[in-house]
Design a protein around this nucleic acid. Structure first.
Lengths: 184, 184
DNA sequence: GCCTCCATGTAATTGGTTACATGATTCT
DNA sequence: AGAATCATGTAACCAATTACATGGAGGC
């Protein structure tokens, strides 16, 4: 018996798992690693959340176990029903998440600390963004998108590139606003 | 008796409330409205979460009730201890949140639907971003930042402007990738 | 008198993280 | 033999949303 009733609407995580399994069959362990990798820049989940969700997707018929490996490894693949659900989610529903931009929230309160501390805050953001940017650029340069799946990946990467670039520029600009006017 | 033990570390929401009260004393109702307004673009919270958090901040001595109004209205102000805690949070800690970019997550799976549907998805994002951008620009143009608090607000707004602009550009670029090559 | 808005609070549920728990396989 | 990695699962807790619940004040 599942703890979820049949008609219940699926979580974002459930759809993320369906989307990943739509590409290649994977185990819960593989999916966990995917969230620790490049996918982790847009969404993340721990194994403690993934395994119960897989159990539910299996019971609901959205995925099926196709292989069993060593150490109890279970490989899942998406079913036609699962693929239909994934497509329905992508086409019929719109993302509606309340934003959680902690770094930007903090910038609202920078007037409560010294200009020096505020400047250090923005400079740290800028430095970290420039670092990320370098990594993204390295990936983008050593990557040829050919399959539709790779094209989708490249499009997501492009978003990361552009947003990280403006974050670096904006943070430098913001740091400048907290610069002291030449105190000797 | 509180449900939280004395030494416990405060949530992001608790610090957000402290930051807002550092500007002007407000009631729980006012704070709720602030999250529904411009602050809601970077962080959001419902009254059901705010009222218990205020009760805890009061008990911990980070805020104090300074006024009582009609209909049970309670106005809170930050205390010196609260201000110290806010500054400690801003200076000593770094934001460490796992990202939840659902719109970008979806873009990874666009290869599973038809190019037409994928293009519609990105065009909807672009249209929505252009709309937001126009609103942000209107605010930015009719706004003169003079106080330190206003400068901080202007800096946050600038982030919104720049990021929304690249979102619009990126989504158009992405939509282009799913354009059909002239089918008659 | 009725409707809307102001104003506060609690309860139930879902989503997500950390901690607990176990065991097999591979590498050195 | 011991360590690192592979692999799965549950329990406890914190964060956040939705729903439930109540009542006062002001406008029409």
């Amino acid at each position: 018996m599942s703890s979820k009733t049949p008609g219940e609407k699926l979580s974002v995580l459930a759809h993320a798992l369906l989307g990943m399994l739509a590409g290649t069959p994977m185990s819960g362990y593989d999916l966990t690693q995917a969230f620790d990798g490049s996918l982790g820049f847009v969404w993340s989940a721990k194994h403690a959340q993934i395994y119960p969700e897989l159990a539910w997707l299996l019971e609901a018929g959205h995925i099926e176990q196709t292989q069993a490996g060593a150490r109890g490894r279970k490989v899942y693949a998406i079913t036609p029903a699962g693929r239909t659900e994934l497509q329905r989610w992508l086409i019929e529903t719109r993302p509606d998440r309340s934003p959680r931009q902690e770094a930007l929230l903090r910038s609202f309160f920078m007037w409560t600390i010294t200009p020096d501390d505020a400047r250090a805050y923005f400079e740290a953001i800028a430095a970290s963004a420039r670092e990320s940017l370098a990594r993204y650029e390295a990936i983008a340069n050593s990557f040829e998108a050919t399959t539709p799946e790779e094209v989708a990946y490249r499009i997501a990467l492009e978003s990361g590139l552009r947003h990280t670039r403006v974050t670096a520029e904006w943070a430098s600009w913001a740091a400048h606003h907290y610069s002291q006017p030449a105190t000797t």
